[in-house]
Design a protein around this nucleic acid. Structure first.
Length: 511
RNA sequence: GGCGAUUUAGUGUAGUGGCCUAGCACGCCGCCCUCUCACGGCGGAAACCCGGGUUCGAGUCCCGGAUUCGCUACCA
């Protein structure tokens, strides 16, 4: 691939970055890195009505968390700035004038209510070559009236004059040649005087051209307007440097139909945003992958495989491996239902493989949230606990469920296990066990285990019964890692005191 | 409605005319491991949207239909 590859991710700051947007950003990033190209982040804030404060910071923070690096952008700067569209008004104004002067666009004065009326009067009304002659615009009004209207402060929009009956070709790297007749395109609004801002279509083409974008990689929802964009490149005389297009399949609801939405996450219980988001207007809180205990590398890996595959059976891939293997040739074209359950599996894989000390750090806030003062335990202790239980969980927060007994002695004993394992003779056997344990000098797993097992064998006790009662006394239920790994970590004193407590507390079932 | 895209197990996908009695993974079920629960290992159920063609041969190519998704704003 050429080293002139320049791609952009161009979100609107109208709310938190959607997980589908994250995937689009990721594919852009993977492609850029693979080609040794540049990744540009452009903020498309041309809809002043829908601007949401904080959204831009959110986008930056989310991409940073996921490791999707930006080479040029609002924060990073770069030779083709500004990278925020609201700061590029002059550029758009001059380009609108170019089109106007060339007769490729015109001024329209129709008010929203007039347009609405036209739409309700005529079915399938479309502002295009067949109807613009009946509307109030610079094509139908005398020049002096147009001037008078503008000078008088009348609000207007600039519309693109789409040439009728032309087959417009869009070359999509994923879908091949897509042909659409220009008759189905309307004279899109390119600029609105009300806020002195262009619409997406104009700003997008102008910026992509000026920022020397080589590949436009975006969601499939843009495919229908891609012919319009091609026409715009032609109108500006930029057809020869038009970027290549890639329209990625959409992320769909896990069940049912339609695009993945925030409500699906609430309904099915998974986040649709990378980071926690609090709506500044309503205060409503949306879950985030980060706060839900997902690892960024797991989210990246999971997302990468939703709509792309490496061509073989490899599933676990680091960012570098993804960069090396990514290819549009292996992107699917159909929308992918958002398989959030598999996301949990990816997280499990990454947690299992994660360095114990790093995982221990992530676990500390969870301990605190559960009322445990992590400072009361040696770092090494927490690290060893984590290494013992990490392959049993999907999420960091679940580490607590499987390791709480390492931090808090059980106060309750699971009823079913008590019934099954705490037989009438167990208190006395446990008394014996205490004696055995107290005579063990080296309490490590490898040293203590043969002693206890030998005692059980000598006495002719039932191994399972004794070991499970032992476990029940120490853990509170019949679950968990190898028993002697637990006691090694807990130490002799704590182990013995827990057994004593169990003997006192557990009522022997009636016989 | 119009336009476009799309279509392999429940889900994500492999498959570029014979190597497909359709592979992998998640999920589900069973077995093994074992002091328990997990992990892990092994095994199982489960798919080429439908109909026509082309071809000695089609999941793979062509046509038609259906499906699903998207777009159809002075939103992106």
């Amino acid at each position: 691939m050429s080293d002139n590859v320049r791609v952009r991710f161009a979100p609107s700051p109208t709310g938190p970055l959607h997980i589908g947007g994250v995937r689009t950003a990721l594919y852009n990033y993977l492609f850029a890195r693979q080609c040794g190209g540049k990744m540009i982040l452009r903020i498309e804030d041309t809809d002043s009505q829908r601007f949401v404060p904080g959204a831009e910071d959110y986008i930056n923070e989310a991409l940073a968390w996921l490791g999707i690096g930006i080479d040029e952008g609002v924060r990073e700067g770069g030779p083709y700035g500004p990278y925020k569209q609201s700061e590029r008004r002059d550029i758009y104004r001059s380009h609108v004038k170019l089109l106007l002067d060339a007769g490729k666009a015109y001024i329209a004065f129709d008010t929203p209510s007039e347009l609405e009326a036209a739409r309700s009067e005529r079915q399938n009304f479309q502002y295009d070559a067949s109807t613009r002659g009946t509307m109030r615009n610079s094509l139908t009004l005398p020049a002096d009236e147009v001037k008078a209207l503008i000078d008088g402060g009348a609000q207007y929009v600039v519309r693109f004059k789409v040439e009728p009956d032309r087959d417009v070709e869009v070359n999509d790297l994923l879908r091949g040649k897509v042909v659409i007749n220009s008759n189905v395109l309307d004279d899109k609004v390119l600029y609105k005087s009300a806020d002195d801002l262009p619409t997406y279509h104009l700003a997008n083409i102008v910026d992509d051209h000026l920022m020397k974008i080589s590949h436009v990689i975006r969601g499939e929802e843009w495919l229908p307007s891609a012919p319009l964009h091609v026409l715009l490149y032609e109108a500006f005389g930029w057809a020869d440097t038009m970027p290549a297009f890639v329209h990625l399949p959409l992320l769909l609801k896990p069940d049912g139909k339609g695009k993945l939405s925030k409500r699906d996450g609430d309904r099915l219980g998974f986040p649709v945003f990378p980071l926690l988001w609090t709506d500044p207007a309503t205060g409503a809180v949306s879950r985030g992958y980060r706060e839900d205990g997902y690892l960024p590398e797991a989210v990246v890996n999971f997302l990468a495989l939703l709509g792309w595959n490496p061509g073989d059976d490899t599933e676990i891939m680091s960012m570098d491996e993804l960069i090396a293997k990514f290819s549009f040739a292996h992107c699917s074209r159909a929308g992918a239902k958002f398989a959030y359950e598999k996301g949990a599996w990816f997280n499990h894989q990454y947690i299992s493989e994660m360095a114990d000390d790093r995982l221990a750090e992530l676990f500390k806030p969870v301990l605190a949230a559960n009322g445990v003062d992590a400072g009361a335990f040696a770092d090494d202790y927490i690290v060893r606990v984590v290494s013992l239980v990490k392959n049993r969980v999907n999420f960091v927060r679940e580490l607590w469920d499987v390791s709480r007994f390492f931090f808090v002695a059980p106060v309750e004993y699971e009823a079913k296990s008590v019934k099954k394992r705490w037989s009438a003779d167990m208190p006395s056997i446990m008394e014996e066990l205490i004696g055995v344990l107290e005579n063990i000098g080296d309490f490590s797993s490898s040293a203590a285990e043969p002693v206890v097992l030998g005692w059980i064998a000598d006495k002719g006790y039932h191994l399972g019964n004794v070991m499970n009662a032992f476990r029940l006394a120490v853990v509170g239920e019949c679950k968990g890692p190898h028993m002697f790994e637990i006691t090694e970590l807990l130490g002799k004193d704590e182990t013995v005191s827990r057994i004593r407590r169990a003997i006192r507390e557990i009522a022997v079932p009636e016989c």
